[in-house]
């Protein structure tokens, strides 16, 4: 059960900080080819920003932005993107997850493989973000049954 405090400082600071954290998380995911980063790291940062939202504004108030129903859809979507890219490569005549066979209009095989890696990172990022928030919400918003014996 998340107890909500009416604290103007926490609310204002998190309202200012959350967009920057999310922009940074997207940068970490998308720039994973050229700098430290990638799907797992960016997904965890993105999840942390939503956890900060829930901590500052309460689970009820942030219900319209993130709910458990949407999060399960997002988690499944992340895994679906991952295995879907592998399946497309399989259908185009390569091995499973062999990105060189993806039907992309690029001139050389390494560039196509880089795009395939980017797709995988996006899928992993969405999945990890959704799972992190799901675990947090499931544990934090659990209420024990009233059997006080």
């Amino acid at each position: 059960m998340i107890v909500q405090y009416e604290n103007i400082i926490i609310k204002t600071i998190s309202r200012i900080l959350i967009p920057f954290i999310q922009i940074y998380a997207l940068y970490v995911i998308m720039h994973g080819h050229y700098s430290p980063g990638g799907g797992f790291q960016g997904g965890v940062i993105l999840g942390a920003s939503f956890i900060l939202l829930v901590l500052a504004f309460g689970a009820e108030a942030s219900q319209k932005r993130i709910s458990l129903k949407k999060l399960t859809v997002l988690a499944s979507l992340g895994l679906l993107i991952f295995s879907g890219i592998g399946l497309v490569a399989l259908l185009m005549g390569g091995n499973y997850l062999d990105y060189g066979k993806l039907p992309l209009p690029l001139e050389s095989i390494p560039k196509i493989r880089a795009m395939g890696i980017l797709g995988i990172e996006i899928g992993v990022g969405i999945g990890v973000m959704a799972i992190m928030i799901t675990i947090f919400l499931a544990i934090a918003s659990y209420e024990t049954e009233g059997k006080n014996d």
Partner: peptide, 25 residues
């Protein structure tokens, strides 16, 4: 040369060992 990705951790994670990563996900 093979994946066009300077970050080796990313290319090993998502290309050479992508089946492993699928299992982890």
């Amino acid at each position: 040369e093979e994946t066009g990705t300077p970050n080796m951790v990313t290319s090993v994670l998502a290309d050479y060992r992508s089946y492993d990563t699928l299992g982890e996900a």
